[in-house]
Design a binder for these strands. Sequence first.
RNA 1: GGUACCAUGGCCGAGCGGCUAGGCAUGGGUCUGCAAAACCUAGUACAGCGGUUCGAAUCCGCUUGGUACCUCCA
Length: 495
Amino acid sequence: MSLYQNNELRIYNSMNGEKEVFQSITEGRIGMYVCGPTVYSNVHLGNCRTFISFDMIFRYLKHLGYKVRYVRNITDAGHLTDDADQGEDKISKKARLEKIEPMEVVQQYTIDFHTVMKQFNAFPPSIEPTATGHIVEQIEIIKTIIDNGYAYEKNGSIYFDVVKFNKDHHYGKLSGRNLEDMMANSRELAAQSDKSNPADFALWKKASPEHIMRWPSPWGDGFPGWHLECTVMSSKYLGETFDIHGGGMDLKFPHHECEIAQGEAAHGHSPVNYWMHANMLTLNGQKMSKSTGNSILPVELFTGDNDFMQKAFSPSVVRFFMMQAHYRSILDFSNDAILAAEKGFNRLTEAMKLMNQLPISKTSSVDVASWKSKCYAAMNDDFNTPILVAELFDAVKMIHTINDGNATITKEDLDDLSTGMNAFFYDILGLQNAQEETGGSLNKGLDGAMKLIIDLRATARANKDWSTSDKIRDELAAAGIALKDGVDGTSYSVE
RNA sequence: GGUACCAUGGCCGAGCGGCUAGGCAUGGGUCUGCAAAACCUAGUACAGCGGUUCGAAUCCGCUUGGUACCUCCA
């Protein structure tokens, strides 16, 4: 019996704004698609929040025993700098500016993205398809949409006919808009546009002679529109209707709206059962954005080399910081907030170490079973990680109370607690402790050396040679190593 | 201008009709050669103004402030 059979998972569906009991299309299996990055620059921390949120969701679904096929694309073509006809493909533009091949741009930033995701301990998706790898499929679906009467050709480009589509379907249902309002309130029209209506969007763009990224098509050389790749790749790998589609909140309109339109225009039915949107990470109260300079790169955070934070933070601390907020809430990133998260995180990892050496009793005065069920209840309620974290701190308190002899626990319960803590901390929240992050082996030599130093200092202290013992402590502190004199001896921690 | 969303104690951040969220910081205490760390413990907040209700941070209305989308954005 799998866990999902006795856990009622509820997911907030952006389509109707309600938490719904999750039911997969195929028993025990889930298809999940998440819009990936456009690889024309380094991913910043805001981009990462979305992928970390969905990594947590992926992890919990797997934990519940589902077989999840998680598809996350790499956009390596077709993402225009703007929606006007003179709009340039972002990757082409970068390649032109740096005088390199577009695929060099793609390769460089794809590698960067993977590196960062690995640092954040995010699982790779099951399939990571690229737009350029699916040009043939995109051309095919355009033909289908044209055949179904929802697209038209103009000067070698193909546009989706939103007005026509809206007569038979509702364009705007995900983002709560309707076409009439949008047309009435749209900003100045691009007068020179080939579109018959400003709300229409490109499925295929004709390539100008100097455009490097181009593919042959029935309509001449060109490149695909941005929205199309997700429709094509999700339906190819997950089917015409699949369980979960995720992405950043900012993709809700127009990107996801267009995906729905394309799916319905091509296949005649809705492509997705549950739409999930991760909210934005802000910096100084403003959305992170590369173009405005209001963004921070993960590497700048890990090294401390940035203008916003007073010190460096490890990937797990950053991840933990994100997990302390709900994925649907806007989260503001600040020095004070991450500093507070780091302290809490350390307290959590220390307690987990302590958990492994707790005294065993014949009876338990703590209720591990109910603790565990509260953890599951939190996650089952639309992946409420902040509540889960609060429960984890409840367990921290439990561990200390037992350690202090004010509560007791049986071997069975302790095993249960330990299994639970490890599952939620490592497997589901995807956190790691400091040793794991640095690879563990690095600390071995240091451990030996520190043991020697601590022994020498213990001898000095036993001889009441305070000047020596304080000199050791102070100079180590200056070197970034803090000594902690506990009841059971001295331990150390590296900043 | 249009459409959403949000305003919670010093800070971050859950809750969304009745019960202490949690973390950080702060005060008090235990421990300690001193210090740090660790642990224990204290604090009762929901933008403003009306309304609904036996009861509202939680529902409704208005006001004020903020953010996002409507161009590219995770």
